[in-house]
Structure formats: C-alpha cells, structure tokens
Design a protein around this nucleic acid. Sequence first.
DNA 1: AGCGGTCATATTGTCAACAATATTGGCTAA
DNA 2: TTAGCCAATATTGTTGACAATATGACCGCT
Lengths: 226, 226
Amino acid sequence: MSELLSPTYTRADEAFDCLQTAIVKGELAPGEKIGELELCSRFDLTRGPLREALGRLESRGLLVRRPHAGVKVVSVSASELMELYRIREVMEGLAARQAAERMTDQEIADLQATLDTHERMIDEAQGQAYYQAEGDYDFHHRIATGSRNTKLAQMLLGDLYYMVRMYRYRLSTSTGRPQRALGEHRRIVEAIAQRDGELAEFLMKRHINAARQNIEKKIQEGDISI
Amino acid sequence: MSELLSPTYTRADEAFDCLQTAIVKGELAPGEKIGELELCSRFDLTRGPLREALGRLESRGLLVRRPHAGVKVVSVSASELMELYRIREVMEGLAARQAAERMTDQEIADLQATLDTHERMIDEAQGQAYYQAEGDYDFHHRIATGSRNTKLAQMLLGDLYYMVRMYRYRLSTSTGRPQRALGEHRRIVEAIAQRDGELAEFLMKRHINAARQNIEKKIQEGDISI
DNA sequence: AGCGGTCATATTGTCAACAATATTGGCTAA
DNA sequence: TTAGCCAATATTGTTGACAATATGACCGCT
C-alpha cells in the first residue's frame, strides 16, 4: 500500500496497512475482541511492530484497547455514522473551496476525465456497488488533495474516509443513487473549474448532506442495519 | 495527565503524555532531530513503550519519522498554521451549532460561569498571556465536548488543539485581544443558551476567522516569527 | 441454589540483546 | 581543491524471553 511512498517499509508500516485494510474490509468485525498472538500468526508479524501499529490505529479511532484486556475493533452506531457525515460536510466543503482556489488546470482536467471514467463504470457495471463506491472515493480523494491543505487532507484521508469506507464495505452498498451523485460531482467540478470557491463549497456540502439523508432514510426504513 | 481516566496507566501512555506535553510546551523544539535513547534517559523510559508512543504521535502529526534516520518534531510553517485555523473555523463552527442543540442547561450555566472567571483573570492578571490562552482553550474545549459528537471532539481535542497550543507556547503570545475575544465568547454562549445553532455557528466561525486574521497581521508586520 | 472470593491460566505489558540500515568522516582520484 | 566513494559507527528496527495483570472457573459460604 504505502511501500511505494516510502522507500524503506518497516514491519510496523506493514502491520498498520494490513490491519487497517482488514478492519475497513470487515475481515475483522466491529466489536470483535482479538488477541495479539492471533493477529501475529494471521498476518505473519511479531508482536513488537504489531503493537506499534495497534497504537497508531487506536490513536486514529479504528480500535480501542483496554490495558491487559485486549483490543477490539471499534463499533460505530448509526447515530455516530451520521455524525461522521456532519463532519465530512463541513470539512469537505472547505476542501472544495480551497481546491477551487488552488488546484492546477491540469488537476482539474484530470478530475473531469475521472468523472468520465466513473460514468462509463456506472453504465457498464450497473449496480456494481463496489466500483461505484471506489469511484466516489476517488473523487473525494482528489479534492482533499487538491485543497493543498496538508492537515485537512491528512484528517480526511487518514481518519474520516477509513471509517466511512469501513461502513461502505459492511453495508456493501453504495449510495444507491449513482447517476444523481455523478451529476452532483460534475457540478462541483464545474464550480472548481470556474474558480468559484464559494459555490464549490456550497455544492459539496449539499452533496454530502444528501448522501447522509439518503443513508438515514434507509436506516429508518430498515433497509440496512448497523 | 490521563492516569485519572484510565485506572491502569501503562508506560506507553506515560511516554505519550510526556512527549506530547514536551512538544506542546516547546521543550522539544520543532525540527529538532532527537534520538530514541536520549528520549529514554530524559523521561526515564525504555524503548518499547517509547516507540509505541512515537507511533501514536506520528499518527497525530506531531512528529515525523524516517526509517533508520530518527524522529524529529514537526515544524509548521506560518502558512500551515493559517491552514489550521481554516480547519478550526469550519469544525468549531459545527461544534458550536451542535452544542447549541445538545448541551444541557447545566453545562451552559457552567460555561457562563467559566466566562466570568475568565473576565476576572483578564482584569487581575493583565497581560498574562499564558492564563488568557488557557482560558481560551477551556472555552473551546467545553464547546467541543458539548457538541456530543464523539469524533468531532476527538479530532479537535486530540489533533488540532495540540498543534495550535504548540504555537501558542512557542510564540508565548495569546491573541493579544483578550477583552474583545471575551466579548465574542459571550455572544457565542448567548446564542447557545438561546438554542440558536445557526447563529452560534456563524459567530464561532467569525470568532476564529478574526483570530486567524489577527495572527496573520502580526506575522506580516514581523511582530512574531515562525 | 445463588453469590462471593480465590487461584490458575492465558494474555498483555515490559525489557534487553541482536540485526539491519543511514549517517558521517576520511580517503582516494580526477 | 573538490567530488565521489568506502568503511566505521551510531542509531534504529526487530526479536524473543520475562514480568504483571485481567479473565474465568472452581470451591466454599450464606
């Protein structure tokens, strides 16, 4: 995963990546109590690097540790998931505004090309929730990076997205409104291309708010459970 | 520090708290390259727990590690500090809005009493930048907690505030506008007391924006340097 | 029979020795 | 004289063993 970024890749990094993807993909179920030695044998690691990775993951809120009592994957309630979307709303709104001010023309062109790819993906693989979710993630990822706000991108990419993706995998459902979401994405990119930060922020906030309400409705209807 | 929260306090927790406060207080200067054994002797720790703490701190962005090349305290440029304030603006705006919706009457009363204390502090200890900064921190801390948004509070209290406080210590200067800030605090609490979330959000955003501009001006005037 | 306490066990926290790697200084050659 | 390379060194990464503690079962008491 990150072995491309850092020339030397330590076991602790390896442990961190393995555990993070395992948690996100739901291979380690939320609330599941899990022993260190079990994790070691499972991922072929030794306890030292593993514990370092556990510390990082705890600090990021993906799991909780109780001294001498083991570690368990964090389980987030429905209401807490909704709170995550409230945070995303304001933070990604800011990201969109700053992206409109700072992205290069090339980056914007790439972003538009990305949306074309997403459109084909939706047409071809109709209902393939997984790929839709990945496309959505790609879009938001690019805007976070494009904000040129290091800490903002770090918080979005390093904290929030992992928790949100964790629930995407668990629910194995995308927003369920792919073409509508794509349209919203297009309008956001349009605002960015016109360097209209204020509009980009407004549209992004509305986009995420709509996604939140969509999930909230599904939960209330009992379509999905957490 | 956290030994009150968790009944069992491990060496790793101790290491984490020690290092964090040392970084925040500037005892470990930004950019300073620092060896593990030196840290061990300095805080009377062994390398195991220390490394676990280093992993956590790296994950929170307070220091950076390069494999086999050591660890150094993160150094934030002036522009990055300004970016932090942009993030605070939107996140604390959200916190204020949710606090207005969710704080108990008791908490609001306590918050108002806190402001009275701050007022006395400003009168008595005129120009005592340190205590003013602590009062300011207390105010924002209570609102973050009052939002009842676990992740939001975690991100504010566990990430952003430490970085901001780090620069407060380094610059050893509060905003330099204590009574004006206090007035803004009062108006925010007023909005919260009236359960006007929208207004609370607006006022909080303006409050932080003003603080940012204030620092920006000082930097441009050369009053303070980073 | 239900509850509380105690003890064995398994798991986590901690430590110190070993291996691997980046840095730094000196040396050689152009 | 300077640039580049090489080796010695010190520092970090890793490992396995040891110590401390929470869990859970068993037994005695009420």
